[in-house]
């Protein structure tokens, strides 16, 4: 296949920490507008994979190409500017700012020192904050201090902060951790909505949730890909059942 059809092309990616290979010779291809879920047991290298893509961890060898830009050599903020957004496992928001400010500060303009000093909150910015807040179910809480949100709402807020940047690749590390059943359903709807015009890469343990959202599932085990395919195919895969899903 022609590599330019993929938004993200990971080839021969390896990272080793003192000889331990957390990600081992990994190949992963993500298409435009695809919602991919990565599952796997603890220590499989899922979070490390996201760290590598967004530049938090530097790869030992291999290549990560995003729309034909090599990411492995870029600094974190440059990777973000190419269009990659990443949500962390524990909700990481600015607790001392309001929901509105959290979203506003994530708006992808005024990103340089001088730019931010002379940045003006235009109507376009306000409109965008409101539309995103609506999307992440926080329109009522706009003026609330973010520290006062529930755990699930914090997760949504962080997704919203990423949506403000309108990334072409959105990476979410366990987005429904600590959410109630109802919040999980809402989040599944949200993800299904937002993957319409971008690719989404999700790490998740909750198989019910994965079923609701995944276009395609990748199973990681000991830094390698164990299986890849549709949810049904993965669930009936004998090795996957052995190492992860259980009988």
């Amino acid at each position: 296949m022609n590599p330019t059809e993929f938004i993200l092309t990971i080839e021969d990616l390896t990272v080793s920490f003192d000889g331990f290979k957390a990600v081992d010779n990994l190949n992963l291809y993500i298409e435009n507008n695809e919602l991919r879920v990565v599952i796997g047991p603890n220590g499989a290298g899922k979070t490390t994979l996201l760290d590598l893509i967004c530049g938090k961890t530097k790869a030992t060898s291999g290549s990560i190409k995003f729309k034909n830009t090599e990411l492995t050599r870029l600094a974190e903020h440059q990777i973000v500017r190419t269009g990659v957004g990443r949500k962390f496992q524990t909700p990481s928001i600015y607790e001392n700012l309001t929901v509105y400010q959290n979203l506003e500060v994530s708006y992808p303009e005024g990103r340089s020192v001088l730019g931010s000093l002379f940045f003006n909150t235009t109507h376009a910015v306000q409109a965008r904050v409101h539309s995103i807040a609506e999307e992440i179910f926080l329109i009522e809480q706009l003026n609330l201090q973010a520290a006062l949100l529930s755990h699930g709402q914090k997760q949504w807020l962080e997704i919203g902060m990423l949506l403000m940047q309108d990334p072409e690749l959105l990476m979410l590390d366990e987005p429904v951790a600590g959410m109630s059943a109802k919040e999980r359903d809402l989040t599944a709807d949200l993800l299904n909505r937002i993957c319409k015009n971008r690719s989404v890469l999700v790490i998740e343990h909750d198989m019910e949730f994965v079923k609701k959202i995944a276009h395609k599932v990748t199973v990681l085990h000991q830094g390698k890909i164990l299986a890849e395919g549709s949810m049904e195919k993965i669930q009936s895969n004998e090795t996957v059942i052995d190492v992860y899903l259980g009988h």
Partner: peptide, 10 residues
Amino acid sequence: DKEERVRFSG
């Protein structure tokens, strides 16, 4: 508050 989040917001 969260330096990492700022960094990974570009």
